[in-house]
Design a protein around this nucleic acid. Sequence first.
DNA 1: GATGAATGAGTGTTCATTCAT
DNA 2: GATGAATGAACACTCATTCAT
Lengths: 197, 197, 197, 197
Amino acid sequence: MSDSTTEASTARRVRPDVQRSLDALLAAASEVFATDGVDAPVRRITAKAGVGAGTLYRHFPQRSDLITAVFRHEVDACAEAASALAEQHEPVEALERWLQRLARFVADKRGLKTAMHSGDPAFESLPAYFMERFVPAVTHLLESAAATGDIRADVVPYDLLRAVSGIAAADDDAYTRRTISLLVDGLRYGGPSAASD
Amino acid sequence: MSDSTTEASTARRVRPDVQRSLDALLAAASEVFATDGVDAPVRRITAKAGVGAGTLYRHFPQRSDLITAVFRHEVDACAEAASALAEQHEPVEALERWLQRLARFVADKRGLKTAMHSGDPAFESLPAYFMERFVPAVTHLLESAAATGDIRADVVPYDLLRAVSGIAAADDDAYTRRTISLLVDGLRYGGPSAASD
Amino acid sequence: MSDSTTEASTARRVRPDVQRSLDALLAAASEVFATDGVDAPVRRITAKAGVGAGTLYRHFPQRSDLITAVFRHEVDACAEAASALAEQHEPVEALERWLQRLARFVADKRGLKTAMHSGDPAFESLPAYFMERFVPAVTHLLESAAATGDIRADVVPYDLLRAVSGIAAADDDAYTRRTISLLVDGLRYGGPSAASD
Amino acid sequence: MSDSTTEASTARRVRPDVQRSLDALLAAASEVFATDGVDAPVRRITAKAGVGAGTLYRHFPQRSDLITAVFRHEVDACAEAASALAEQHEPVEALERWLQRLARFVADKRGLKTAMHSGDPAFESLPAYFMERFVPAVTHLLESAAATGDIRADVVPYDLLRAVSGIAAADDDAYTRRTISLLVDGLRYGGPSAASD
DNA sequence: GATGAATGAGTGTTCATTCAT
DNA sequence: GATGAATGAACACTCATTCAT
């Protein structure tokens, strides 16, 4: 089968160079945001991405467009990591690793806190997206671990996400790591109501 | 206390207009930092303080000088509030009110988090100053409350400060208030080892 | 007339889609120039024309190429209007209507004044083209009107064109309309030397 | 008498460096606007004025502020030239020289035509200012010339200003000069109602 | 030939910092 | 010491032009 079949199947084919620009921009912005915050100069992002300023503005007319795109992109990556970890590790191990991964995500996004509290409607949808993607991910991990009897079965996924977010926001990697381990230990050995609020 | 007396009596007496400029700048910067973050335009601060830009730079050649001055100034104010509250309220009440006050302080300083993690040596001393001033303050409040038998006696002041900081960093006023109350209730009724790390 | 026939029959026949692009570009540029001036963004023109930017540059490598093409195109349209009006109206009526039409043309081209005085050689030929097309047109209208005895016979076509241009440049539609009427009345009733310079 | 007396007499004394900046900016802008139009890059103006960009924005926050300032400044200069010419020349000579001066002013301001017709309220007051300053100037010149019997006494100043504006807008120096001379000759020898509209 | 994505120089504008007054 | 005008580097953003598709 020829290329055209492939083209036809995806309607308007995304031109490869366009995709390359998008990918490079998202990757560059992700790094720069983590390093210098979301107010970093646009030029630093375009330089790292190897594209011109106009390319950035074509795809992300507003700075908030880029910020939210990066946020969603990384939420997706983190959520997808849950499946990968579930396949590679025993349930509890997968759960703990993913919570550590989540903590890293939250810590990296600390620069967004201010922006998200600015009241800018561009960021309104982000918290919902966070939960929409992570609740199913953690739910699945919890159920798998509970199914083997390794952890209790009454943990509320939302509470767990919030707890990890709070811990990670403390911005002390060692503390975060220790505390999440403690938390998982708690899930493992605690009584049936220990993790509820 | 005695230091300031020495300063006033010897050395170069601080001229009243200079003091006025300093006070106005600290007050203005405090407000502006809370409202617009620590990266707010200098002009906004000088305008609010009613002084020229040159005056600000004379007293605070680096921006970080102003930031740390405001930080220390407000740490001092918060620490001093402990004594005032201790005089006006019963021990436990004073303790809780002060922890709420501390939480407000931490929440207001959220904008500093990024700066403090920038590695800039100008900010290195701030966490130590935080503890240096607050540990004695909270220690005194804890001891008073423990002396009356209203709370347990084995609370580690440092842990309590850190816990409140973490809670306040969640940036949800209602949550913070509720949780601090809960914490104090825990102190009041908990067993002898509950508050330790 | 015969030229266009020759063009069509020999040489490289203009492909229909090419002609469509050219027409669309000229029409779009004409509108945009009138609305936003000759310095309007290229994108606005290509968007209105429904073509890509590359297409514009293929046909008009320099911006001045597009400007002069639009200018000539509209000079042609205005000149051709003279014949049409001559067929539909009595001679003097046709003359006056055409002069009003000419005034509108001049007023619409006001944005070109600056460009034409910029010394850019690309625009050097435009005034000559203006006269080359309009002198015959107005000459014919004047002769028809003079032949019936409705207006004097000694009007210098060039002077009349220049006078109307000057009046129209005043950029006051009502004033222009009034004054052209007055001018035509003058032609109608004036003595044998009134319209000469 | 000391400096302070001088200072006191003019209330808040304009600092010499500020005045220098203002003068340089107005002069530079005037030249640049004449050369490149009112949309010329800000940098060209500041470079010619020898000041930083910030200085321009301090004094003229909006571009229209600079444009109107230049306009008024030059209207003033032209209006003041009337008195100077009246002192140096015979009445009719002064009148003609000033009308030529006015024609140059109008021709130089051709770039403003588009801006003034843009509907921007910033430019609304300019035509009124034009008349407010020039009507008295030309009135005085006309009266002086009429008093000696050199020209007729019934010329409407406003009409004369408008006529010269129209002539100058033709943007052909030789034509303008010739026609203004002709106009003044007309004033000199014409009958009592010839110059009225 | 047509398209429109990419480029990157150019421009307006802000704002930290200096320094003449 | 205080003031605030001036500086100019830095930045966001636009848009003419090129060129891969």
